[in-house]
Amino acid sequence: LKKVVALYDYMPMNANDLQLRKGDEYFILEESNLPWWRARDKNGQEGYIPSNYVTEAE
């Protein structure tokens, strides 16, 4: 899975979204639905995130 790091905080707009915290790492599960990607956080929560809020992890 592709790993990304959040560049900004993101508060979910609806139940399908995943909250982002700046500096945290996330795994990308699906990239087909631009600009929204399906992601999983370190706690196993899954949801959609804005792809322009993250960058690929080193």
Rank of each mutant, 00 (worst) to 15 (best):
K3L: 10
K3E: 03
K3S: 06
K3T: 09
V4K: 03
V4A: 04
V4H: 03
V4E: 01
V4R: 03
V5E: 04
V5H: 05
V5A: 03
A6M: 01
Y8M: 12
Y8D: 07
D9Q: 03
Y10H: 06
Y10L: 06
M11R: 11
M11H: 13
M11Q: 13
M11K: 12
P12W: 02
P12A: 06
M13I: 14
N14T: 11
N14Q: 10
A15Q: 12
A15K: 13
A15H: 12
N16F: 12
L18Q: 01
L18K: 00
L18R: 00
Q19V: 09
Q19E: 13
L20Q: 00
R21Q: 10
R21M: 10
K22F: 05
K22D: 03
G23Q: 03
G23L: 03
E25R: 05
Y26R: 00
Y26S: 00
Y26N: 00
F27D: 07
I28G: 01
L29W: 05
L29S: 03
L29D: 02
E30R: 05
E30N: 08
E30K: 06
S32T: 13
S32V: 09
S32D: 09
S32W: 08
N33S: 14
N33K: 11
N33D: 15
L34W: 15
L34T: 15
L34R: 12
P35W: 15
P35A: 15
P35F: 15
P35D: 15
P35V: 15
W36G: 05
W37R: 05
R38P: 08
R38C: 09
R38G: 03
A39N: 01
A39E: 01
R40F: 06
R40L: 08
R40I: 10
D41Q: 02
K42A: 11
N43T: 11
N43R: 09
N43W: 13
G44A: 04
Q45V: 13
Q45Y: 11
Q45H: 14
E46A: 04
E46R: 03
E46Y: 05
E46G: 02
G47Y: 02
G47V: 01
G47P: 00
G47R: 01
Y48T: 07
Y48P: 02
I49M: 03
P50H: 08
P50V: 04
P50S: 05
P50T: 03
S51H: 11
N52G: 12
N52C: 14
Y53T: 03
Y53K: 05
Y53S: 07
V54Q: 00
V54K: 00
V54T: 05
V54D: 00
E56C: 09
E56M: 13
E56W: 15
A57S: 14
A57M: 13
A57H: 10
E58I: 14
E58H: 14
E58G: 14
